[in-house]
Design a protein around this nucleic acid. Sequence first.
DNA 1: GTCTATAAACAGATAGAC
DNA 2: GTCTATCTGTTTATAGAC
Lengths: 226, 226
Amino acid sequence: MPIDTQTQSTELSSSQKTRLALINAALRLFGSKGYAATSTREIAEAASTNISSIAYHFGGKQGLHTACAEYFVSLAKTHVNDTSPATSAAWQSLSQENAEEALISFVGRMIDFLLGSKEAPSFVSFVLREVGSESDAMQQIFEGFIGPSIEQAALMYSKATGISPTAEEAKIAVMSYVGQVFYFRVAQFVVLNSLGWEEIGPEQRKLIKTTLLQKVRAGIAAAREE
Amino acid sequence: MPIDTQTQSTELSSSQKTRLALINAALRLFGSKGYAATSTREIAEAASTNISSIAYHFGGKQGLHTACAEYFVSLAKTHVNDTSPATSAAWQSLSQENAEEALISFVGRMIDFLLGSKEAPSFVSFVLREVGSESDAMQQIFEGFIGPSIEQAALMYSKATGISPTAEEAKIAVMSYVGQVFYFRVAQFVVLNSLGWEEIGPEQRKLIKTTLLQKVRAGIAAAREE
DNA sequence: GTCTATAAACAGATAGAC
DNA sequence: GTCTATCTGTTTATAGAC
């Protein structure tokens, strides 16, 4: 059961504060160093609490890890739901042009989040380490967030291009867009060194966005003509 | 100094055999479980030797890790040099059409290697874990292999599209192609679950290849018309 | 060069005081 | 609920026999 650790706006009990601090610290440390390389002592110190709090709140290190995955899913879900409040049925009636714009907007928002937000590095690192080990946590992240997102984007793609919504090509195309964007976050070291950049700031992000979205539009147009 | 552990064809001394077995076992284990989660006992067992061999041959766990990176670079380099024996000057004189075909061939071979070869999972996992930690090993991998490959592909892209070879757009486009392909290997869990596939076999690889290369061609055509 | 035995450090978990 | 103190197992590194 994903516990609501974020939406509670005003007052948090001392217990909840400790709990949330532990999850945030763990998510960051698990992401940057990996699960095995992160010690519970380290997490407790980063969360400004005691090692025993981990056993008390989560049963142990593994329980804290599970809680991190649940926290990520609940956060990612509200993020996505906020930005696309329309129902699945509403997508069905979109015109080709509107579907294309919706897909472009989807990829654009993904670029802004993955390359522009403060939380992205932790989140992406965490999920990236999970996806390698086909863990229960990954299953949960897929079913709760990634799967539905790809499903929805594939629907937009099929509307935009006119190909069948059940065609495997739609999902492959969508995943290729996702993959492109992730690369610029995950392989940031390669990106910075190849281009001689110091960082991926607003200007760099804009250049990446322009180049990538042009490719997406070209790909949609080409698929439409088949 | 990258030590030649592979090209020696016929006879390997007992010492070299142990050394190579340790590197191969470590590369696989570091990739699949991560550096911290892999114990030297485990590596020694997988390599059918004793723990102390690690200290003897590499000084310790960290030394073995460095040797893995060096081994990867030397292997990747010979792979790339084998498949593109032409000099940099030769690329300069390519026609638009030939440059496009060279780029398509580059992406196609990347798909075949990353999704079809037996070694790819270990290698990709290893490099993926390195790229997160901007380690000395990663610097070496970039300078020895990744950087030059991107440079070369960007040159093909500029020839194929007619844009300036120094334009940042060329490298961004090339990296977007690389990113797409990597996603299908790295996020294989997502790919299989989204598409309901059991594995990425020859037929699946062919479908991915067709879809992705169509996008690459469309992107080149669009950039050419600007 | 390879092995056994062991040292020294560190991990996660837990009992019990407050 | 949070803390201190401690237990038990495991890690890497190393000294020394062969």
